[in-house]
């Protein structure tokens, strides 16, 4: 399964990639904001998206809205520092399937990914 990780922090992308590899997902592509995420997505093969919210150029919310317009079925997990109830609801309304607040544990990421794929 190919997973697209979109986050402007290279450290955070590495943490997510490490966590994914520990739970058996090693086929990963990366984007550093919504724009580059869309470019990666356009190259094909992506079966799941993990995206941050707060990014320059195109933020995660805008990215999710564009993706949902093109691909209603792809599972999207938002991993962000935004913890307020209204943010979570806004993300879900935009089309996010599940939501993780940073900092997270590997068990949480695993649980959320499995719930999306299950």
């Amino acid at each position: 399964m190919k997973i697209l990780i979109v986050d402007d922090s290279s450290t955070m992308r590495r943490i997510i990639i490490n966590t994914l590899s520990r739970i058996g997902y090693t086929d990963v592509v990366e984007g550093e904001n919504g724009k580059s995420g869309l470019e990666r997505l356009g190259q094909g093969g992506v079966e799941m998206i993990i995206t941050d919210w707060n990014m320059p150029e195109m933020d995660g919310l805008e990215f999710v809205k564009v993706v949902r317009g093109q691909n209603p079925g792809i599972p999207i997990l938002m991993v962000t520092t935004n913890a307020a109830k209204e943010d979570i609801v806004e993300a879900l309304q935009a089309g996010v399937n599940n939501y993780v607040v940073k900092p997270f544990t590997p068990d949480t990421l695993k649980e959320k990914i499995e719930s999306l794929l299950g």
């Binding site: 520092t81 935004n82 940073k102 900092p103 949480t108």
Partner: peptide, 20 residues
């Protein structure tokens, strides 16, 4: 564009906000 409005509620302990 990258600035969060709600970062003040974000903790530093893993999964602090998971239940919420």
């Amino acid at each position: 564009a990258s600035i969060s409005n709600t970062i003040a509620q974000t903790g530093t302990t893993p999964d602090e906000n998971k239940a919420h």
